[in-house]
Design a protein around this nucleic acid. Structure first.
Lengths: 191, 191
DNA sequence: GGCACTCTAGATAGATCGATCTAGTTAACG
DNA sequence: CGTTAACTAGATCGATCTATCTAGAGTGCC
C-alpha cells in the first residue's frame, strides 16, 4: 500500500502552481515532474484538474500554516518580532529560489477568483486559517484588535510578496516588514 | 485611419486578463470580446500574445496611474485620507463588478514572474510608476521617508485586494485601509 | 490457486491553443 | 483611374490541452 505517487503528484502540482500558476500548468507537466504515470493522476483525482487544484491548495495551505505556527510559537521573541521573521524568511526563500517561491496560494487565488468557485473557496479557507493563526498569536499577547491586525499583517505580507517577486528585489518585503512590525509593537499592551 | 480595432483589442484583453489571468485567456476569446477579426490581432500585434500582454499591462498601468493621480491631486484632503480613498474606491469597484475587477496587474505579474521576462518587466515598471506617484504625494506633504511609505502602502493595498477578492468580502480592504492610514497620519509633519 | 482490488501504463479522443498563410476588402493618394 | 498600403476575414497547421478508455501488473485475502 505504501505508494507515495499521490503525494508526489500533490507536491509537484504545488510547486508548479506556485511558480507559474494554475492555468499555465498542464497535467502532463505535473505527471512528468512527479515522475508519475498519467493513468495514476485520474486514479487519485477522478474529478480531474480542478480536484487536484483544490487539494493542492489545501496541501500547501496547511504546510504553510505549520510554518507560521512554528515561527509564532517561539514565544521568547515578541509578536512584532515574529511578524518580522515571517517577512524575512519569505524574502530569503524568494531570492534563493530565483523568485519562484512566492505565496503558494496567491496566484491560484487570483486566477480562480471568477473562474472556479471550488478553487476560490479553497483559497479563501487557507487565507482564513492563516489569519486565525496570526490572530491567536496576537490575542495571546494582549494585542488588540487581534483579528483586524491579523488581516492587516496578512495583506501587507501578500502585497509585499507580489511587489518583491515582480521587481526581483526583496526591498518591498523588508521595508513593509519594518513598518508593519512597528504598528504591531504600538499595539502591545504596556508592559 | 480612424480604426479603433486596436484599442478595442487592448481594452478587451485588459478586462479578460484582469478577471481570469493571462494564461487562462485565449486569443480567440479576446477577439470575440473585442468584436475584432482574428486577422487584425496579428496585424496589430505581430509578435503575438506576449506583445499583446505587454502592451495591455502598460495600458492598464497608465490608466490606473491617472486614477491614483486624480485622487492624490485633491489636496483639500490630507494624504492619509487620500490613501483611504484609494482603498475605498477599489472596494466599491470590486464589489460592484462581482469580484471581477481586482488589480489589473497583479494576476499577470504573478503568472509572469518566472515564465515571461518581458511581461514581468512590464508589470514591474507599472508598479514602480504607482509607487513613484504615491511617493511624490507624500513628499509634497513632508511625509518621510516618502518612498518607503509608498512601498508599504502599495503592498498593503495589493494584499488587501487579494484577500477581499478571494473571500468575496471587502472587510480586508477596509480594515487594512484604517491601519495604513493611521501609519501615514503618524508620519505627517507636526502642523 | 483464484478472485478482487489497487495502481500503472499509455493510446486515443476531441477540443482548443497560438501562430501562419492566403485572399479579399477597404482606404489613401498620385 | 490605378496603385499601394492598411486592414479584414477566416481556413489551416501542428502542438497541446483535459479527459476517457482499455489492458496489464502488482498485491492481499480466502
Amino acid at each position: 500500500m505504501g505508494s507515495d505517487t499521490r503525494a508526489r503528484l500533490l507536491e509537484a502540482a504545488a510547486q508548479l502552481f506556485r511558480e507559474q500558476g494554475y492555468a499555465a500548468t498542464g497535467l502532463k507537466q505535473i505527471t512528468a515532474a512527479a515522475e508519475a504515470p498519467w493513468g495514476s493522476l485520474y486514479h487519485f483525482f477522478p474529478r480531474g484538474k480542478e480536484q487536484l487544484g483544490v487539494e493542492t491548495v489545501e496541501h500547501s495551505g496547511t504546510r504553510y500554516l505549520r510554518l507560521f505556527d512554528l515561527v509564532y510559537e517561539r514565544t521568547e521573541s515578541r509578536a512584532d518580532e515574529s511578524v518580522r521573521d515571517v517577512f524575512r524568511l519569505s524574502a530569503e526563500a524568494l531570492e534563493k529560489s530565483n523568485w519562484g517561491d512566492g505565496c503558494p496560494i496567491a496566484t491560484v487565488a487570483l486566477e480562480a477568483a471568477t473562474t472556479s468557485e471550488p478553487l476560490r473557496h479553497a483559497c479563501a479557507e487557507v487565507f482564513a486559517g492563516w489569519r486565525a493563526a496570526t490572530a491567536r498569536r496576537f490575542a495571546a499577547e494582549g494585542i488588540e484588535p487581534a483579528d483586524d491586525l491579523a488581516i492587516y499583517v496578512l495583506s501587507a505580507f501578500e502585497g509585499a510578496l507580489i511587489l518583491s517577486r515582480t521587481a526581483h528585489d526583496t526591498t518591498p518585503l523588508h521595508v513593509t516588514a519594518d513598518l508593519v512590525a512597528r504598528t504591531i509593537r504600538a499595539h502591545h499592551p504596556t508592559d
